[in-house]
């Protein structure tokens, strides 16, 4: 289509770059999204059981979520690399 069928190679490579960036970020956001919400849910449950530990629980929740977020950030970096660098 882009090259009248003569030599699609370079166009296909660019297409795969953008398609890959979308796939990468879409699937990459699934896991961190799920994990962080479950962590927050259990923190709420813990605060309900032991309200005096609220500060400790909130801190633990945030540290856990930050670690869980790392794979989402890897996906973001790879998606941006695919779009702008490669």
């Amino acid at each position: 289509m882009g090259a009248e069928g003569a030599n699609l190679g370079p166009y296909l490579v660019d297409m795969a770059k953008y398609l890959g960036a979308g796939l990468c970020m879409g699937m990459g956001a699934l896991g961190p999204g799920l994990g962080e919400g479950f962590a927050a849910g259990k923190a709420c449950e813990g605060i309900a059981r032991a309200p005096e530990q609220a500060a400790l629980l909130t801190r633990t929740m945030l540290v856990g979520q930050a670690v869980s977020e790392s794979t989402g950030i890897y996906s973001l970096v790879i998606a941006l690399l695919l779009i702008f660098v490669v």
Binding site: Y11, G22, G26, G28
Partner: peptide, 30 residues
Amino acid sequence: HNIVAVGAMVGAGWSMGFGAIGAGISTGFT
């Protein structure tokens, strides 16, 4: 009909669609 832009459109839809699943389910659990 640029095939590069075709890929970008599918990528955009896929990225936002699947990216919203995890956050939706788990914030409901929260």
